[in-house]
Computed example of a mutant assay.
Amino acid sequence: MHAAHRQLPYTVRLDWGLKGATAILPGAQAAVVVDTLSFSTTVSVGVEAGLAVIPFRTAPGDGELQASAARLAAERGALLAGPRSLTQLSLSPSSILAHAARSEGGELVLPSPNGSAISQHLAGHVPQLLAGTLRNAGATAAWLSRHLPPSAVIAVVAAGERWPGGALRPALEDQLGAGAILAALARPAAQLSPEARAAVALFEAFRDDLPEQLLESASGTELVMHGFGHDVELAAQLDACTVAARYQDGAFRAVS
């Protein structure tokens, strides 16, 4: 990894995917994983409903990984989120809302190929790990400001999506989610890397039109075409969630 890719000397950094996270993580006191459609949004809905959400790396069509997730859920007596669905607990945040009343106080194993994979990799490599999104941007920034000194290094990781074949596809919704958190963090601009400042500028440009922008984005359009438009609308609800999602004891949990 080239030293320039660490975004030194800035203390607030942003990069994409697992490789980007690896580049900007050294020296960080906190990392925030932003996967707006939908891992981070699902986590925010889950922890707000009283669930402890366990990230689990998976890949489309990988039956062995899905079987491992099922075994983990069985071992812990936890709920298991399946592939995106509105009729059962799944990666869809709408499904979590629908089942929240009978799920409070339990654990949920949440497999996903992007946000979960990055979170699972970063766990144990950074003192504080959070799942951030538009829904909990203000709560996430407030938690970081309360618990970290002004000079702390913060690594914001935009998860992105995947092209067929597995290559990273940068995604508008994750840049907006990252920008919302960084804007609410209210750190001096001199502390933010150019990549972080660009995310803030994009968010500020779109903040009054987030639902439409997400619905019309490539990722949003794809979900709408498959019947999950409400997931996109949930994800666009800026600061609808008043608790942050912090990784502790193997799961993301609500903190304020």
Rank of each mutant, 00 (worst) to 15 (best):
E104A: 07
E104Q: 08
G105D: 02
G105K: 01
G105E: 00
E107A: 11
E107C: 03
E107V: 00
L108F: 05
V109P: 04
P111T: 07
P111M: 08
S112P: 00
S112Q: 00
S112I: 00
N114I: 12
S116W: 05
S116E: 07
S116M: 10
S119F: 06
H121T: 15
H121F: 15
L122H: 06
A123V: 07
G124S: 08
G124C: 08
H125F: 06
V126R: 03
V126P: 06
Q128N: 11
L130P: 03
A131Q: 02
G132R: 04
T133Y: 01
T133A: 15
L134S: 06
R135H: 00
A137I: 07
A137R: 05
G138V: 01
G138Q: 13
A139D: 04
A141V: 07
A142T: 14
W143K: 01
L144V: 09
L144C: 09
S145I: 06
S145H: 14
S145R: 15
S145V: 10
S145T: 15
S145A: 15
R146W: 00
P149N: 11
P149M: 12
A152E: 08
A152T: 12
I154D: 04
A155D: 07
V156L: 14
V157E: 08
V157R: 10
A159Y: 04
E161D: 15
E161C: 13
E161G: 13
W163D: 13
W163L: 15
W163A: 15
P164K: 10
P164W: 08
P164D: 12
G166F: 08
G166P: 12
G166S: 12
G166Q: 12
L168E: 02
L168Q: 05
R169Y: 03
R169P: 03
P170A: 11
A171G: 02
A171P: 01
L172S: 10
E173C: 14
Q175Y: 00
Q175P: 00
Q175N: 01
L176F: 03
G177M: 05
G177C: 06
G179Y: 03
A180I: 06
A180L: 06
I181C: 04
A183P: 00
